Simulated scan of single mutants.
Amino acid sequence: MKPRVLVNEVKGEGPPVVLLPGGLTGWVSWTPLANALAARRRTVRVQPIPNELGSAGERGDAGHTAAIERESLLMTVDALGIGTADFMGWSSGGRALIEFALAHPERVRTLTLVEPAAYWILDRLGESTPKVARLNQFLHTRAGQDVSEDDLAEFVELAGLVPSKDQARDRPAWPRRVRHRMALSWSSEQAGRPDRDVAELAGIRCPVLLVRGSETADWLGRVVAVLDDRLPGTRVLELPGDHACHLENPEAFLAAVERHLAQ
């Protein structure tokens, strides 16, 4: 598998901001916030390859890696004529942006990371919990496989989007998540574990806004805490809610983002 320009949508004019989604529903999750940002900025939503192909029903390709993800984003901003931009990423999109910022720091003006699913950081620190191990086992055993609705319900719990998988089908987002569930088959070990050391995180020297939910999974909160400790220029925003706290509190999130970008 080779990197390629990602499917993207551009709205608005002004300084560029690039939005990377989480690993399940993809770029549709950013739509309301992107529309608001586009009033002042050239706002780019990108659709990572796992979201594009997984949402079309394709099983994950073992050739897709963190490096493919990183270089595909680089090709995309190059194709759009973007030199330096503000980047925002949620969940796996946040994990991808950590890798991108380490490899291409000159392209990143600021980062906004909403609960980045960078579980590799905890692995490297020897802090993996049973819940992280369970999530990893779940994702890696389903890589390249069909994903059932029961699988999806378990993932939604492990990702901190519901307290229990028994409640997953009761949430308004369930029908949309079902349509995109095959994107989970792209969450292989080689995609989620870049060949990095935790000490390298200090190389991200741009301003970073870290966002976490007040009711999120403990391991996601711990990733945010480690990044806050290891990165030199961070602010932490806690919003009410779970892993999708920025979507549950759009006005507060956008106000914090505007302050962050203005600095």
Rank of each mutant, 00 (worst) to 15 (best):
5 V>P: 05
6 L>M: 11
7 V>T: 15
12 G>V: 05
12 G>D: 05
13 E>L: 00
18 V>F: 06
23 G>Y: 00
27 W>H: 03
29 S>C: 09
31 T>W: 12
36 A>R: 13
36 A>I: 11
37 L>G: 06
40 R>E: 14
41 R>S: 01
41 R>Y: 11
41 R>A: 07
42 R>I: 06
45 R>Q: 06
46 V>W: 00
48 P>H: 05
50 P>S: 01
51 N>T: 05
56 A>N: 09
57 G>S: 14
57 G>R: 15
58 E>Q: 15
60 G>T: 10
61 D>F: 12
63 G>F: 12
65 T>C: 00
65 T>Q: 00
66 A>G: 01
70 R>K: 14
73 L>Q: 00
78 D>Q: 03
79 A>N: 01
79 A>V: 07
84 T>M: 13
85 A>Y: 09
86 D>H: 09
86 D>V: 00
89 G>P: 08
89 G>Y: 08
93 G>E: 03
98 I>D: 04
101 A>H: 07
102 L>S: 06
102 L>Q: 04
103 A>C: 14
105 P>C: 09
106 E>T: 14
113 L>R: 08
117 A>L: 00
126 G>P: 10
126 G>N: 11
127 E>G: 12
129 T>P: 00
132 V>I: 15
132 V>R: 04
132 V>P: 03
133 A>G: 13
135 L>M: 05
138 F>Q: 03
138 F>C: 10
138 F>S: 08
145 Q>R: 14
146 D>H: 11
146 D>R: 14
146 D>T: 13
147 V>G: 00
150 D>C: 08
151 D>M: 08
152 L>S: 04
155 F>A: 06
156 V>P: 03
158 L>D: 03
159 A>V: 01
160 G>H: 00
166 D>C: 10
167 Q>V: 15
168 A>R: 02
170 D>T: 14
170 D>A: 15
172 P>T: 07
173 A>R: 13
174 W>F: 14
175 P>R: 06
180 H>V: 08
185 S>P: 05
188 S>V: 11
190 Q>Y: 08
192 G>A: 08
193 R>L: 13
194 P>N: 07
199 A>H: 04
202 A>G: 13
207 P>C: 12
207 P>I: 14
207 P>D: 13
209 L>K: 14
213 G>Y: 04
215 E>R: 13
216 T>F: 06
216 T>I: 02
217 A>C: 04
218 D>I: 12
219 W>A: 04
225 A>C: 01
232 P>I: 15
239 L>T: 01
241 G>M: 09
242 D>E: 15
244 A>R: 06
245 C>T: 07
245 C>P: 02
246 H>E: 07
247 L>T: 08
248 E>D: 14
250 P>S: 07
251 E>M: 12
252 A>L: 13
262 A>C: 06
262 A>D: 10
263 Q>W: 09
